[in-house]
Amino acid sequence: MSSPFGDGPPPGVSRREWRARTNAASSPASRTAAPESLADLLGGAASAAVASTPTILTVCTGNICRSPLAEVLLRARLEQLGVRVHSAGTHAMVGQGMTPQAQEIAVRSGAAPSTAAGHAARYLVEPMLAESDLVLTMAREHRSHAVQMMPSRLRQTFTAREFARLATTLTDDVVRTVADAAGSDPRARLGAALRVLGDQRGLTLAAAEDDDVVDPYRRSQATYEASAEQLLPAIDEVERVVRAALV
């Protein structure tokens, strides 16, 4: 199965209208509004498409280095499975693209150049959390921010490296077994896998800093490479678990 729209407009929605709705959801004013899902905003057939689409949200601070790198890499790997991946920042540099260093690492690691070049930073707002099945943050501070914004997303929110650490305790067969028990709906299957992964919290020991991906913004190329070295193995584990749950 293929993604109905990725981060582009869903069926029946023009690119101009899609941009207007996205900008409205990302505006500072929307951060004070009541939580509203993307499906509610779209309505009709597009709403149904959103409702059936597994969605992953990646989060960092400025939404120009770490979270868009995670976004474009996961999209390249999971889009053909019908998974939608997007990103946002807790203090986003709204409208700015990925830094050149992050873009270079993204393309080198398998992202489409046009996808990396087309990124525009967005604020993290409640509708994004509400519609996401998995929220992957780049550091513990972002995880705390997301959960404080929407406490109901606690069980779906992990730092990327925390996810990877917990995932190493689960084989593909275990993931498939719990997903099969949830039925055929892709979101239900992914949700079941995430619940069993979340149950591993507290059973594996790690230093707190081992759950963070270092922030490379305005730092050296060596720091960008070190940040990627922390993030990329986590992306591998996310892909493995999601693929085992959905395929």
Rank of each mutant, 00 (worst) to 15 (best):
G6E: 14
D7T: 12
D7K: 06
G8A: 12
P11D: 12
V13F: 06
R16M: 10
R16A: 14
R21K: 13
S30L: 00
A34V: 09
L38T: 07
L42T: 13
V50H: 05
L57T: 03
C60I: 01
C60Y: 03
C60G: 14
A70F: 05
E79T: 10
Q80M: 09
G82H: 15
H86P: 02
G89R: 09
M93A: 13
M93L: 14
M93G: 04
V94C: 04
G97R: 01
M98E: 13
I105P: 08
S109T: 12
A112R: 15
S114Y: 05
A121L: 12
L124P: 01
E126D: 13
S132N: 09
V135H: 07
E141F: 15
A146S: 14
Q148P: 00
L154N: 11
R155L: 10
F158L: 05
A160R: 06
A164S: 10
V175Q: 05
V175C: 05
R176F: 08
R187K: 08
R189G: 00
A192D: 04
A208W: 03
V213H: 00
S220P: 06
A222K: 04
T223E: 13
Y224A: 01
Q230V: 12
L232I: 05
L232N: 05
P233W: 02
I235E: 08
V241L: 08
R243F: 04
A244M: 07
A245K: 03
